[in-house]
């Protein structure tokens, strides 16, 4: 169903398509550990039965309508303190892919993709560390493309490329385009142009420079997102002018409605 990519250097040269599987990340991890997958290999499925969001939260998707895939990467050039750059690059690559079709695409810290205020995709990265060196990374990507009915999502705060554009997409044609955009940002990172990745990631952060209300330690607090720290913490300017950094579990997004 999916042909290997012709326009990339190494992303998607090998594509493993599984009509259905438990989790593309788990399959990719198993294969890469057995030495069966090289840098840039892709595992893609029509139906993932045990997909994961952040540790334990599930990511449900309709069969064959969306992108559910994992990319194997070996970012051995990144030090342990630079890991967040990988997260930033992937989010930015997906954003750049979506930007060909829609506007108002935002990266919701740390690495979810939003169109306006609705979630369109997410990223889950699993690294295997040996000491302080990354042996390999498995980058799981879920991106809503053709799904039109999200009645099964309780929050309703989701969308797809189809809902935003009115078009339907041929996944096999779109995959090389997505992988090309991911690779472009990744190559910048590999070439040491990490500062440009940080700057662009910041430009597309949802809520940047806007006064919004966040839940911090159970209290509603008004703050303005200033950017992220080198390790990926969210930098928020509070009402008293103080800038504080928050870890992912310390701050919760509050939606206006």
């Amino acid at each position: 169903m999916y042909d290997s990519c012709t326009k990339t250097l190494f992303f998607g040269k090998k594509i493993v398509y599984l009509p259905t599987c438990h989790s593309t990340n788990d399959i990719a991890t198993e294969l890469v550990r057995n030495g069966k997958l090289a840098d840039g290999a892709v595992i893609i499925t029509d139906e993932q039965t045990g997909g994961r969001g952040q540790h334990g939260t599930s990511w449900l998707t309709s069969r064959g309508q969306n992108f559910t895939l994992s990319v194997v990467l070996m970012p051995t050039f990144l030090s342990l303190s630079e890991h967040f750059l990988l997260s930033q690059s992937i989010a930015l690559g997906i954003r750049n892919y979506l930007a060909d079709f829609v506007s108002n695409i935002w990266i919701k810290w740390p690495n979810d993709l939003y169109i306006n205020d609705l979630k369109v995709g997410g990223v889950l990265i699993e690294n295997a560390l040996q000491g302080t060196r990354i042996a390999h990374s498995v980058v799981g990507i879920g991106l809503n493309i053709n799904q039109a009915d999200f009645s099964s999502v309780p929050s309703g705060r989701v969308t797809s490329l189809r809902l935003e554009t009115g078009m339907t997409f041929h996944l096999a044609e779109q995959l090389p385009r997505l992988l090309l955009e991911l690779e472009k940002v990744y190559l910048r990172l590999r070439a040491g142009r990490s500062e440009s990745v940080r700057i662009e990631y910041r430009q597309h952060l949802l809520g940047l420079g806007q006064k919004r209300v966040y839940s911090i330690g159970g209290q509603l607090v008004e703050g303005t997102i200033m950017g992220v720290s080198l390790t990926g913490k969210l930098r928020l300017e509070l009402a008293n002018g103080e800038i504080c950094e928050f870890d992912i579990k310390e701050i919760k997004w509050q939606w206006a409605d």
Partner: peptide, 19 residues
């Protein structure tokens, strides 16, 4: 090389392999 635990930081899940 044997994975012993996972340490999550900023939604990056790091599998720690034994040395």
């Amino acid at each position: 090389g044997k994975p012993v635990c996972i340490i999550e930081a900023m939604k990056l899940f790091n599998e720690i392999e034994s040395e």
